[in-house]
Design a binder for these strands. Structure first.
Length: 933
RNA sequence: GGGCCUGUAGCUCAGUCCGGUUAGAGCGCACGCCUGAUAAGCGUGAGGUCGAUGGUUCAAUUCCAUCCAGGCCCA
């Protein structure tokens, strides 16, 4: 007789091979067709909201692995909060304005750009952004990221642009928006400001000159050697044309300086570590050192400017280096970034007497009207004529050039708009707001606090086309800022109706309420500002443009989540705009993740050739594997990705999948509503593993709440591999297969399997949404069940199954099982047995253990997966096979199982052969056959 | 150069805050079993000078300092 056909072997249509790359898109299509997202929203009406506010990626290029990490993390959080009982709305967004897009459009247009109006260029930029939004949206969806993809937010939407303008004018009305001068890169050939990204560095030779800046007044209390000599700061520069704009000489507060014998009556001030190379350059190697000078004692003294005869302040600055020069740094706050920063600290103006064409203003004596580079030799001459030039040579270095015309650019102060950090206490209030936010990890607080504490005023103006204008007017007559509530409101309405384009399409007079005049001088003619806003301001007001605006969202957000670079970026700009206008941070908590690095921990770069694109991973492994990678990694630090890591995750995925598949296979004839066994009637071991499952549920729910997904992954994987696969399921096979299909024994096991699998599916749904849904579809249903696992909730710990006492009683059984498997392995190695059912185990347990095991005597063969267990009370003879020395309280002996092998269940039994009707099977199987019949 | 952060088995992670038995898990690997989860399943085993060096201590993976390697943000 073919007894195999009488067994209840697993059977399921759930495929072993996931074939993710093919099936995931199919699943996405099914969800879309079923309008799953809308159903989730509808089912969450009235629940407490959880708002993760999306930081907008830039609408340029394809997504990279870091973007994928970010969006997947957000998705896991949104899904887990949703399933934890919240209404977790996710509105994705895009950052649309800004230089990179304008730059790319410029490149596409080439010379044709000249023929286009500003409005037409802006239109091209808009189309460019739209193109990449469409691309990225599909890429994000492919990752399984769920959200309101049909109604995302775009910083170039008219309403959004209007709110950018409105928020900017908030700062204008409060007086925080101020005009001031600041040096920027300027190409005088193209007559345009350039951003860092538009600069190309090339080798260039420049004059290199050493110039005397004599200190005014006697340096008191200095070395007596200096008596009778004038102390002269020796500066070095490669841009002689900036000398007319010199306002200061910077020294490093911590370096050692010396005074060295110079021209008659002079003592030259040079950093000690620069002395030798300088003197050599000057041809004065033998010059006598007159004494040491403490730079801190010179702070605030004045030097005489070698050309103008005016003052040049001695200042202290840490950017002074000893790589080149003299350690005394020529400082022109209108012509250098660091010079500007130092100048600001000392209250010096950003003096820059150079016009748009790179020519000195007429006010500059001797050089007025000269182009700056042409002025270089003339300045040298003038310095030499005055005896101020110590030495001149030619110097080759890397110098910034314009990306478009390839000509050298200059640093030049131009009028810019700033949001003042200290005028109305913005900095102080922002620092206070930081401490009312939860930073995850906690060090995020230190990071952003330090940045806010030290940052200069926020320069929000850019001289570009693709952005939202700084919507302010100045009086053509007196130059005053013309702004009031009515004007602000008027601009806001216009932008709402027409977008920011209206600013570029209409004259100033058409953009203000009729009859607007300058309050200072009564002038009617106004000038509209031509600068646009920094794009960080655009995204920085998303809390106002998105959280406040949308009826399905709210202000503030529960969570912002981005890479740790955003402490300087979006978290920062959002904090300042929110504190400045609403008095608090726009987020309750901020979570940061690290960067994706390669197997060696190095950053990904094209030049290193270690870039891994999300598309590659998806096509080869599937989005689920990428998601599993996100879940398995501790993202608070940098996270590594590599071939090894991905294939390891594939293995882990297969283990989880196969475990679920086995569970499904044993539930093919199980209808929960009809067959579920009441908990008290279930087998103890079934309840035991439901108890263990509870512990995972508790742990995982806590971890979801704390955003610690990697502990969920490890907990889940261990549970599948250890608790289920290696232990429970292995033990259960005999009962599932050999018992009568409808017997309480089998139904008890199936009840446990069903509860486990149903819970497991819900538990992994936020991490593996595709696989969870696939399982859900194959899972036996019950009345009232959600149509999608994503409409269901996370499993909750159920006190019904929590039974520590039960777990404690079983603990010795599994401890001994470890000894038994070890002994079986040894018997196997000695070729005494093959499969474990060929064995009988003789256990000799010491008193206490014996008492603990005794109640389980009947269960032990099943638990050990052997044919018989002979449990005896006695002192074990010290050593246990495989154990050294230690007195284990049990000895394990492996013997051949008595009786013959049952042809049906393969268990050895002395009674096999005693039934004339079924001569090859055991009494248990005979009963099972009778029951089934 | 400065600020913040990281470094535990081949891989992903526990443990380190509040120093103290042979530093754990899973995967991978090796060897074996099974062929009724089968492009599966089970078992056993081998892997770590806890980045390096100094210091504090009776005792340091754990505390301190320096260095090395790497990351983000500034310069």
């Amino acid at each position: 007789m073919d007894y195999k056909a009488t067994l209840n072997l697993p059977s399921t249509a759930f495929p072993m091979r996931a074939d993710l790359a093919r099936r995931e898109p199919e699943q996405l299509a099914r969800w879309e067709q079923a309008r799953l997202y809308e159903k989730i929203r509808a089912s969450s009406q009235g629940r407490r909201r959880f708002i993760l506010h999306d930081g907008p990626p830039y609408a340029n290029g394809h997504i990279h692995i870091g973007t994928a990490l970010n969006k997947i993390l957000k998705d896991i959080i949104v899904r887990s909060r949703q399933m934890a009982g919240y209404d977790a709305v996710y509105v994705p967004g895009w950052d649309c304005h800004g230089l990179p897009i304008e730059h790319n459009v410029d490149k596409e247009l080439g010379d044709r750009k000249r023929a286009l109006s500003l409005a037409q260029v802006r239109q091209r930029c808009r189309q460019y952004a739209e193109r990449f939004i469409a691309i990225q949206r599909e890429e994000f969806k492919r990752l399984g990221v769920m959200g309101d993809w049909e109604r995302p937010y775009l910083t170039m939407d008219p309403r959004y642009e209007a709110i950018i303008a409105r928020e900017c004018l908030h700062f204008g009305l409060s007086g925080d928006l101020v005009r001031s001068r600041k040096p920027i890169h300027w190409c005088f050939t193209c007559r345009t400001a350039l951003a860092e990204a538009e600069i190309e560095y090339e080798e260039e030779s420049s004059p290199s000159i050493y110039v005397k800046f004599p200190l005014e007044g006697p340096p008191e209390g200095m070395s007596p050697e200096l008596a009778g000599r004038r102390l002269v700061a020796v500066i070095w520069t490669t841009t002689p044309w900036t000398i007319p704009a010199n306002l200061a000489v910077a020294l490093h507060p911590d370096y050692a300086y010396v005074a060295v014998e110079g021209d008659p009556g002079e003592a030259w001030l040079i950093a000690r570590d620069r002395l030798a190379p300088c003197l050599q350059a000057f041809g004065r190697s033998g010059a006598r050192v007159l004494g040491a000078i403490d730079p801190r004692r010179l702070e605030g003294l004045r030097c005489r400017h070698p050309l103008s005869g005016g003052d040049s302040l001695v200042v202290l600055a840490s950017h002074v280096t000893l790589d080149a020069g003299t350690g005394c740094v020529h400082t022109a706050p209108g012509h250098g970034r660091e010079d500007y920063d130092v100048g600001r600290r000392y209250g010096l103006e950003a003096y820059s007497p150079v016009d748009d064409d790179g020519r000195f203003l007429p006010e500059v004596p001797e050089f007025g009207g000269l182009a700056v580079f042409e002025a270089n030799p003339r300045i040298l001459q003038a310095l030499r004529a005055r005896g101020s030039l110590i030495h001149a040579e030619t110097y080759t270095h890397s110098y910034p050039h314009c990306w478009r015309c390839k000509r050298p650019v200059i640093f030049r102060a131009t009028p810019q708009w700033f949001i003042a950090m200290d005028k109305n206490g913005l900095r102080r209030r922002a620092l206070e707001a930081i401490d009312r936010v939860r930073w995850i990890p906690a060090w995020g607080r230190e990071r952003i606090y330090g940045m806010i504490q030290n940052r200069p005023d926020w320069c929000v103006s850019r001289q570009r086309a693709w952005g939202v204008p700084i919507p302010v007017f100045t009086c053509e007559g007196c130059g005053a800022l013309v702004l009031n509530e009515a004007i602000a409101d008027h601009v806001f309405r216009l932008f709402c109706a027409h977008g920011a384009d209206v600013w570029f399409e209409r004259e100033a007079g058409e953009l203000v309420p009729a009859g607007t005049r300058c309050p200072a001088c009564g002038e009617e003619r106004l000038r509209k500002e031509s600068d646009i806003l920094d794009v960080w301001f655009d995204s920085g007001v998303s809390h106002a443009a998105v959280l406040e605006e949308r009826e399905d969202l709210g202000w503030p957000a529960d969570l912002y989540l981005e890479g740790s670079d955003q402490h300087r970026g979006w978290f920062h700009s959002s904090l300042l705009t929110a504190v400045g206008t609403r008095g608090r941070a726009p987020y309750e908590a901020v979570l940061t993740h690290g960067f994706v690095v390669d197997a060696e921990g190095r950053k990904m770069s094209k030049s290193l050739g270690n870039v891994i694109a999300p598309k590659e991973v998806i096509d080869r492994f599937g989005a689920e594997i990428l998601r599993l990678w996100v879940a398995a990694s501790d993202y608070r630090d940098d996270i590594r990705i590599s071939e090894t890591i991905l294939s390891q995750l594939s293995d882990a995925y297969r283990r989880i999948r196969n475990t679920c598949r086995f569970l499904l296979g044993n539930l093919y004839d199980f209808e929960p509503a009809r067959h579920a066994v009441d908990p008290p009637a279930m087998r103890e071991i079934d309840r035991l593993f439901l108890h263990r499952w509870q512990r995972l549920v508790e742990k995982a729910r806590r971890a979801y709440g704390e955003y610690e997904f990697h502990s969920i992954f490890h907990g889940l994987h261990n549970f599948c591999a250890n608790d289920l696969s290696a232990l429970y399921l292995d033990i259960l096979k005999d009962r599932l297969y050999a018992s009568a299909a409808g017997s309480p024994l089998r139904r008890s096991a199936q009840t446990a399997l069903y509860l486990l699998l149903e819970g497991l599916t819900r538990l992994v749904a936020p991490i593996l949404p595709f696989t969870a849904e696939e399982i859900w579809r194959h899972l036996p249903s019950r009345p009232g069940r959600e149509e999608s696992v994503h409409l269901a909730s996370l499993p909750e710990p159920d006190p019904l199954w929590t039974d520590p006492e039960l777990a404690a009683r079983w603990e010795p059984v599994f401890r001994v099982r470890t000894e038994v498997t070890r002994a079986l392995e040894q018997a196997r190695a000695e070729k005494r047995i093959g499969q474990s059912l060929e064995a009988q185990i003789v256990l000799e347990a010491a008193d206490e253990l014996y008492v603990q095991l005794r109640p389980f005597a009947a269960e032990l063969p099943a638990v050990f997966i052997v044919s018989a267990v002979d449990l005896r009370r006695g002192e074990p003879p010290g050593a246990v096979p495989g154990e050294e020395g230690a007195a284990a309280p049990v000895s394990v002996r492996v013997e051949p199982a008595p009786g013959r092998k049952c042809a049906r269940c393969w268990v050895f039994d002395p009674e096999v052969g005693t039934f004339p009707d079924h001569p090859d099977i055991c009494p248990r199987c005979r009963r099972a056959l009778e029951e089934s019949a």
